[in-house]
Design a protein around this nucleic acid. Structure first.
Lengths: 366, 366
DNA sequence: ACGCGGCCGGTAAGCGCTTACCGGCACCGA
DNA sequence: TCGGTGCCGGTAAGCGCTTACCGGCCGCGT
């Protein structure tokens, strides 16, 4: 048989397998790929040799020869930042990107593709090299929001299939996003119409994020429709992170500014920071101030009160991104420039509604 | 310049770049890899051509030629299961594996490696093919717990460098884990000695998981040391998931069996299910029953009361796994068969201690 | 009994890179 | 002025696969 330390020696190739099975390398390859129906007996001999040797074909050689790597690159943004002199790692942020990635992974798996992952740091001012490296190792790219500038995307999309998530379509890349506007409209109406709250603020995310822009616009629209004025502006600017939401509330309280009756946060994480800070200062949620999120990340239902938010089909977002990319890779013609997935309002306690509790773990993101 | 739809045509190669720059392919390669110091003028011409063409070298060809893919495969377990006729997706479980993966990613990035990820389903009875495929596309493998049987690990480890997480070392693979025993000892002592609780149960995880075995043993040891008897046994068997913990408590309550003064859960997720179910039945935590977890996943500090648990250096576990694997890949001799990382007790409210609250997001997992 | 069509399976030509090897040229010392 | 010495950079040989192409052999029909 083999010695234990074989991997220190030259790795096995199909030549080794062929020699052992007493056939040619072509036959080995054919058996391994199930093409051209080799005779059962030949097939068996090859399989036996493969088994005995523990042979695993080299992916690079395979990819080089048939121009298909069966790998899709996923680039996401790593959020870690210096906050108040303390290094803080927003691990909650894991959730959103990672649920998407799992969605991609599941779908990719169905097609025999694997995921090549790489993150881009916030500080990273030239992620191009990194992304090019991924591009060279994969058949197509899925880019999360905020990982590459629009021009960068256009550049790379000219040479390889690209799907963006929560971005904007370009002439050569497709975008997949969820229906921010509809979700935000439904949520804001719930607050202003169903609950009849007289004042409401929108605590923004990154100003340049398409998601944030769409959410803010829908918010403004409903507010105007109802005939009141939404509180926005510089002081209500967050950064999609809990720390950002916390800072906004701290600032407002420190300056003794009034609080609105309801705070609509750009995403769930921001709401986490807001709710925590309000509680610290003795402001009750939802009795004094209602708070809502956006995304419905898993932790949302663990908060007290449980968070009313807009559910994005996070898992499906990823799955869809892969499907679209796959159709581009296999050259079935480029689909429409943008795919929009529906959102839905998830009413829990933080908006002021009374709802019975559901075990936080009995939920599906599919 | 180039037409927008170039990626529908034959992809660029270094020949195209060489032609455009008026040099040979060798020079292009040298410039791209920064070897053999080509003359500045030559270098500039090549760079210009690369820029104009938007050339990205093919990873497969590169890998094939220099026997280094700069890719490390990571295989983790996807947990989704049929529960009480309802499909339930334990997305909290994302956290543990994903924090590890991020740790791997960060370290890999430092070395210019990318992560090739693939999950194995619980039902998947022959993950070997899947893992072989990953092995063929990478320079080495990091296998999470419960993705491959020990014999499978041995087989694959003979042909490629393998690091396991929370598993057991084999003659040809290295294991990285945290010091379960020390953490559990410290935790159990805290409960029995500091708090002086008279009765305590251990709510187990998967019976065959090395982590679970180590934790259970340490628990038993301390309990015996103190001179009382720990509650264990069939009814206290969970499955590392919230639903498992919930089921145990429901069963006990349904049978009107007594509850211990403290419940030590095999991991945080189990504790989530336990705490939720206790609250449902009006049992107060920690006044009536103290509950503790293990792992310190991010959501632990969002629970009410915040969860007392044992911190595993989750992020570092991943980073270390990569470091070890890297040293194996670069052939710096195999390190010790097992690397054990220290754990630490994190005292929060659920054990009965009074502690001041810290913003849940101001925590680092590094 | 001979010719022809099919089916197997072997031979060899790439896939796009890296790099050993070597030839050419410029510059130096004698 | 001529030979020696480097330095650049071109040529070509792989890396481990897939697959087009083709030769051999078996079995059929006439």
């Amino acid at each position: 048989m083999d010695t234990p330390d074989d991997h220190l020696t030259r790795p096995l190739t199909i030549y080794d397998v062929a020699a052992r099975a007493g056939v040619s390398i072509a036959s080995v390859s054919r058996v391994l790929n199930g093409r051209n129906s080799p005779r059962p007996e030949t097939k068996e001999r090859v399989m036996a040799a493969v088994r005995e040797l523990g042979f695993v074909p080299d992916g690079a050689a395979r990819a080089l020869s048939n121009r298909l790597k069966e790998v899709v690159g996923v680039v996401f943004r790593r959020t870690s930042e210096i906050l108040d002199d303390a290094f803080s790692d927003e691990d909650e942020s894991l959730l959103f990107a990672d649920v998407i990635n799992r969605g991609v992974e599941v779908e990719a798996r169905n097609r025999g593709f694997d995921l090549l992952m790489s993150s881009v740091d916030v500080y990273d001012h030239s992620p191009h090299g990194r992304i090019s490296s991924i591009a060279g190792k994969s058949d197509g790219l899925i880019l999360h929001d905020q990982v590459l500038s629009p021009v960068g995307i256009v550049r790379i999309a000219q040479r390889t299939p690209v799907v963006t998530l929560a971005g904007t379509p370009t002439p050569s890349s497709v975008n997949v996003r969820s229906d921010n506007a509809a979700g935000m409209r439904e949520l804001t109406r719930h607050l202003l119409v169903d609950h009849g709250y007289p004042t409401v603020a929108y605590l923004a995310g990154h100003a340049d994020s398409p998601d944030n822009v769409a959410r803010a616009e829908a918010f403004e629209l409903v507010v105007a429709e109802v005939g009141i004025e939404g509180w926005t502006g510089e002081i209500w600017r967050g950064n999609y992170m809990a720390s950002g939401g916390a800072k906004v509330i701290k600032d407002i309280l420190a300056r003794s500014l009034p609080l609105p009756r309801a705070i609509v946060c750009a995403n769930d994480q921001t709401a986490i920071g807001v709710m925590y800070t309000l509680a610290q200062h003795g402001v009750r949620v939802p009795e004094d101030v209602a708070v809502t999120g956006f995304d419905d990340i898993p932790v949302a239902r663990h908060l007290h009160p449980q968070l009313t938010t807009v559910r994005q089909p996070i898992h499906k977002l990823g799955a869809t991104a892969f499907d679209v990319l796959y159709s581009m890779i296999s050259g079935e013609g480029r689909p429409e420039p943008e795919v929009v997935l529906p959102t839905s309002l998830v009413v829990r306690g933080s908006c002021g509604c009374q709802v019975e509790s559901v075990p936080p773990w009995e939920v599906s993101y599919r």
